[in-house]
Amino acid sequence: MNFNATLIGQSITFLVFVWFCMKFVWPPIMAALEERKAKIVAGLAAADRGKHEQELAQKKAAETLHQVKQQAAEIIARAEKRAAEIVEAAKGDAVEEGNRLKAAAQAEIEQEVNRARESLRGQVVELATAGAGRILKRELDATANDELIKDLVARI
């Protein structure tokens, strides 16, 4: 083993190479690796977040759907109730109207009856007057007997 200046040459070369590696080789590669690591971490986090958000949206959609369904059912129920109410009200109105019509008809009938009775009464008076005149075969003073006849008529 001859030791010579190669020893020094090799040492200097070694230190220069290490310096170069430390300045120009190691940092860029490590930086790229770190950057990729950060990118992957961010990507994974984003994927997780996306998944979470999708789950939330799905949940929300289901909730909304449920709500809407409930609302629709409520509206339908209310409408049905209202329809039933309207039918009931219409029925009541109809009955009332019927009753009213019936009452009016009855009143009219009563009026007609009264009128008929009045006219009948008049005719009876005339007939009675004529009959009495004929029976008595005498001239009667219409005026003297008027009170008697009126009393008679009122009693009919």
Binding site: A5, T6, Q10, T13, F17, F20, C21, P28, I29, A38
Partner: peptide, 29 residues
């Protein structure tokens, strides 16, 4: 000085640094 040892050792060291420097220069994420 052992010229052959120095030449080969420097040559190989330069080869190493050159090859790795190439990768370091274009290294991206």
């Amino acid at each position: 000085i052992n010229v052959d040892s120095m030449l080969f050792s420097i040559g190989l060291g330069v080869l190493f640094l050159w090859l790795f420097r190439m990768a370091a220069k274009t290294a991206t994420a």
